[in-house]
């Protein structure tokens, strides 16, 4: 069901990224998502970064408006939806860009997490200080402003009992062969319409990301011919990832 929430805080994480806190917590499994509705503007999927917040990167009209919400404004939320992560033991949480936001609740739910984070520059490494209190943090930035200069995949493999990967699809596709298939989970993203398994728009090689995912074991992702390659646009036409 769709419920209305009141915004209580807009926390600026960086020039591009804001965390929007609302007035109530949502019981959910890390990795599940919410459809965020702004009346008369649209509805898009976001994963919670706090039990009562989403972290959003400004990338278009919808996310600009979402990132500009002020205390007292109202938003609609539908969810939680989809399959989240199973409980992970001693996981390495591998995040790229705003995908790092999704790993925060997973980190808090996990014992002895470690982090492997990548971004274009230091600003994109969300929750860096908080994560350092939870476990070892390895960072790669493309401009070298923080940590290793280069891509997050260049930090792999790292030693851990399990792995969770959330970031741009090409980054995730590059991680896939470097991680053990049976203990690794990926957060797959596709254009969503209904978000409840009806319309099929978010298919990735036939798996409906909204209900079969968005979190998939690597053993499944390895069978997805479309992963890292192509996705269906709003009309259903194929486009390159």
């Amino acid at each position: 069901m769709r419920s209305v929430f009141r915004v209580v805080e807009n926390h600026r994480e960086s020039d591009w990224t804001h965390t929007i806190f609302f007035d109530r917590e949502i019981e959910s499994t890390p990795g599940q998502f919410m459809m965020v509705w702004l009346p008369r503007l649209g509805e898009k999927p976001f994963t919670l970064s706090y039990l009562n917040a989403v972290t959003v990167k400004k990338a278009g009209a919808f996310t600009e408006k979402l990132a500009a919400l002020e205390p007292g404004d109202e938003i609609g939320l539908r969810g939680p939806l989809g399959q989240g992560y199973p409980p992970l033991k001693r996981p390495a949480l591998i995040g790229g860009g705003v995908g790092i936001a999704e790993l925060r609740l997973l980190a808090l739910a996990s014992e002895e997490p470690s982090f492997v984070l990548g971004g274009r520059t230091a600003d994109e490494i969300l929750f860096y200080e908080e994560f350092r209190e939870l476990g070892p943090v390895h960072v790669a930035t493309e401009d070298g402003a923080l940590g290793h200069k280069g891509l997050v995949t260049e930090l792999l493999p790292v030693e851990a009992d399990s792995y969770a990967v959330c970031g741009p699809e090409r980054m995730m596709a590059a991680c896939l062969p470097k991680l053990p298939a049976e203990r690794t989970y990926f957060a797959v993203e596709r254009y969503m319409k209904c978000a409840v398994g009806l319309c099929g728009q978010c298919t990735c090689s036939g798996w409906r990301v909204c209900t079969d995912g968005p979190i998939f074991p690597a053993s499944t992702v390895a069978q997805m011919d479309d992963f890292g390659k192509r996705r269906r646009s709003k009309s259903g036409r194929w486009e390159a990832v």
Partner: peptide, 10 residues
């Protein structure tokens, strides 16, 4: 080709 309506669609 046509994209259909904007979200929300359900």
């Amino acid at each position: 080709e046509k994209p259909g309506n904007e979200n929300p669609v359900v």
